[in-house]
């Protein structure tokens, strides 16, 4: 079975700094892969290359076996990749529906913005994540951190992505909202969507992910199946940057799915 996403020897440097250093990783349909690593390990940079924000310096990206180079974020979106960025990427002065449909606005037959329909649709998808979220007309600036994050998540969900990248989606969420996100992840997984999940919360990672890829200083330390390791093993990998000595990691999990 060809992988949904395959990253081969991908590198990205900022001046002399190797932010992403010859990274290999894969993502299959219906799978959640955690990307872990210390602050500044290069996780966000890696997913920014995947979502068309930065061009890769080296290496290639294959989507369903097909080689892709994304010139812009919109090209990655067209390939079915939706990204929730760590910074959320919301225009603070606009309201939730405007942000949700930013760049993909719904239009009336006269090619003008269909604001009322966008508001209606936004309410549907957002209230599924957070039933208490009512005030659609408020600019994002006036929302709480968790509400903003909900808007960003809703935006990624609305457009039926095949590949979902979530860069710390739960960082600002309350426990109930985290549950909703976990449940959403499970549902999407069942629908055959592949998800890259970046998180610093080991509990969340172990609950949601099938495999984890650990990075240190831009390079991949190892990829392991969650079932084969303990949280302490993974923590040790993140901190020490060494392959886990736990059983089962010798086999390359990428090849054996």
């Amino acid at each position: 079975m060809t992988a949904l996403v395959e990253v081969r020897g991908l590198s990205k440097h900022f001046g002399g700094l190797m932010a992403v250093d010859r990274v290999h990783c894969t993502l299959h349909a219906g799978e959640v892969v955690g990307l872990l690593g210390h602050n500044g390990a290069g996780k966000s940079t890696l997913i920014k290359v995947l979502s068309g924000v930065y061009p890769a310096d080296e290496g290639e990206i294959l989507v369903r076996g097909e080689q892709k180079t994304f010139e812009s974020p919109s090209e990655a979106r067209e390939a079915g990749i939706e990204t929730i960025h760590q910074t959320l990427a919301l225009a603070e002065n606009l309201d939730a529906p405007s942000n949700l449909f930013l760049g993909r606005e719904l239009l009336t037959p006269w090619r003008t913005l269909d604001t009322d329909r966008m508001e209606h649709e936004a309410l549907q998808v957002i209230s599924r994540l957070n039933p208490n979220f009512r005030d659609m007309k408020k600019p994002v600036r006036d929302m709480s951190g968790g509400q903003r994050q909900t808007v960003a998540i809703a935006r990624a969900l609305y457009f039926n992505a095949k590949i979902l990248i979530m860069d710390e989606p739960c960082a600002a969420l309350g426990p109930a909202e985290v549950r909703m996100v976990q449940e959403t992840i499970r549902r999407l997984k069942a629908e055959g969507i592949g998800i890259f999940l970046i998180s610093h919360d080991m509990g969340d990672v172990f609950e949601a992910c099938d495999r984890v890829t650990v990075m240190k200083n831009g390079a991949v330390v190892d990829t392991v199946r969650v079932a084969d390791v303990t949280q302490d093993d993974v923590l040790a990998m993140i901190i020490l940057g060494e392959k886990s000595k736990a059983r089962g990691t010798q086999m390359n999990t990428d090849e054996h799915r």
Binding site: G52, P73, T83, T87, L90, A91, L94, L107
Partner: peptide
């Protein structure tokens, strides 16, 4: 400015240029 895509994009860009870029504008 109020009813078209272009107008919406101008305001989004002004509100947060990085977000506008990340949203593929």
């Amino acid at each position: 400015s109020q009813r078209t895509r272009f107008g919406r994009h101008v305001f989004a860009y002004g509100g947060n240029p990085e977000a506008a870029f990340l949203s593929g504008l």
